[in-house]
Design a protein around this nucleic acid. Structure first.
Lengths: 342, 342
DNA sequence: CTGTTAGCGCTTTCAG
DNA sequence: CTGAAAGCGCTAACAG
């Protein structure tokens, strides 16, 4: 006994076919109350034979939960996000949650658009990657409040925890590494202004290390960059036009660093003989390019996992007391750095 | 006059506040029937002041549509998927659709799991990237039928259209290019068995080109590879252990090609002087590595856009008569290929 | 152990 | 132009 094929079979159909009430069907679906074994079998059979699948919207409507978490990220070109999503996806799957993906190109307008949309779709939680939290974000998230975790940088909002690498310390250590290798002329290609992590924290780490080593800061050795290979290339071109080159360069993102390396090489400079390069992120490409790029390593995958676990706690009202979770990092020395004789 | 902040405001609240019926509120939300301008203003005000957002689950339940499309892909490590998603995301946004993302690691079990889940979530359509369509997939998709488009390879199922590059012809042309450059000893690192596109079609293209050029096929020059840099490295190591090397190598995926290049270089071989390399995909990395990789270029972004448009047509019952859409490709010669004197 | 019933928030006839 | 009411598919009391 089957049902027509053109329209989805509902709990009602199953009930009729199995000769029970819809409540009973609901009980066997959710295992929520004891059901006579023989009845259960009959219901199960009816469900399988008719390819019954519960309607998540109907269920969600009454249970007031969607088993959906929203992810708001700028893009994928930066492979850091690939790992992040991967971590989120795997963890979410474990909790039987699904992912609603929103790509914003880093534009506030899009972020707001998607945040509103996620609200409408009734997601149970949101993992947000934004270059900086603005009042516009908060307004949407707080009424009524929806569990939200910021990834990639520190959040200053009380009810929005964050998961990120310690951008300041990591950058500090990266530059100190360069200093310990004998470098004194150290430039930086920093991230875009307005990006708290790559633009601000990493720059501050660089400046602190320079200062602590008693080195005079050279403002014209700090060049703005972005996140792409192309922007790295351009930033480097810019620096090449301004006179004396530093002996080492700290670049706020690996892709940018690789672009800078390409630019240097095309202009006949050798790495690391003429210029040493230190990146940040340890993306796949970094150990593939030649020379292999030295960089700051951390796990975006782990950020994804941690953020997702945090969201689950928030959803279950277990409230993360750990407002900010910092994932470990380490400086990796590969072939792009040489030691300078002092 | 506002409503408590701890729970979402509903159409009912808005109606009460604006002093109208919920039907009227619904009408102004959806612009579905004329409403007195003054009334409309009052309703709009009530909605804005109370941050009203329609509940998509409730709406979806009655309208029997979710404004959601599901994407099922293996992973992101292959940056081809980044562009794909990007294309899908942008196009979906245009149609006011959202994306439910499912990562399968290429495992059939996961694909089935997610396909079922997407069904439950009532997605209006599915964009699927699977190494090959199996009966298990079909069963889920066909009862009742849900709009689905396969990306990356040809579909043999009547009600599942596909969008992809012509893997056979593109590979054929790539190898012919090598032949035209004077190469006669041409090996291949192919994709994994069971992958129709990279594993089968691209291999057939290679073999056809070899055959058409009257070259004797050397089975031991065809090595299995995967999609990762690592697998390319290993495949190349394998080939290095088997005696004479071909003068040119066609590799079914750029990442694999890059791994192979690294392996060759580490063993002291020069590219392209000792071995010429031709890849497939034209990922970002390909023009970043040195030597720049020659490859087959096509737009995954365009595949995403086309597939999404197709899904929208399917959803609207406009039925795509174009069962298979092929996106253009072209062979790009960069620095990894040298011309052999005949 | 099982059935009846009241909604979840919204759209959509059907009257008025 | 507007309101009342039915119902989308499902869960969760509440009786029995």
């Amino acid at each position: 006994m089957k049902v027509v094929n053109s329209v989805a079979v509902t709990i009602k159909d199953v009930a009729r076919i199995a000769g029970v009430s819809i409540a009973t069907v609901s009980r066997v679906i959710n295992n929520t109350k004891p059901v006579n074994e023989e009845t259960r079998q009959r219901v199960m059979a009816a469900m399988e034979e008719n390819y019954f699948r519960p309607n998540a919207m109907a269920r969600g409507l009454v249970k007031k939960e969607s088993a959906l978490i929203g992810i708001v990220i700028p893009e994928f070109k930066n492979t850091v996000f690939d790992d992040l999503i991967d971590g989120i996806s795997n963890t979410a799957k474990f909790y039987k949650y699904d992912i609603l993906l929103c790509l914003t190109q880093g534009e506030l307008r899009n972020e707001i658009h998607y945040l509103n949309l996620l609200r409408e779709k009734q997601v149970d939680g949101i993992i947000l990657s934004s270059s900086s939290l603005k009042p516009e974000h908060i307004t949407i998230i707080e009424r009524p409040i929806i569990p939200c975790i910021l990834v990639g940088q520190t959040s200053a909002v009380p009810f929005i925890p964050s998961v990120h690498v310690d951008n300041f310390s990591a950058s500090y250590e990266a530059v100190i590494t360069l200093i310990n290798k004998g470098h004194r002329k150290i430039g930086m290609i920093r991230g875009p202004l307005g990006d708290n992590a790559a633009g601000e924290d990493r720059l501050r780490g660089y400046m602190a290390a320079i200062a602590d080593a008693g080195i005079q800061l050279q403002p014209n050795w700090i060049i703005p960059g972005g996140f792409s290979v192309q922007e790295g290339f351009e930033a480097m071109s810019l620096m090449l036009g301004t006179g004396e080159l530093p002996t080492a360069l700290f670049v706020a993102a690996d892709r940018t660093a690789i672009g800078a390396m390409n630019c240097l090489q095309e202009h006949g400079y050798r790495i690391p003989e003429d210029v040493s390069i230190m990146g940040f992120d340890d993306i796949d490409m970094s150990s593939v390019v030649r020379p292999k790029l030295s960089t700051v390593q951390y796990s975006s995958y782990e950020i994804g996992v941690t953020a997702t676990r945090g969201i689950m706690k928030l959803i279950r009202g277990e409230g993360t007391n750990t407002q900010h979770t910092v994932v470990p990092h380490r400086v990796i020395i590969r072939d792009s750095i040489k030691t300078v004789e002092l």
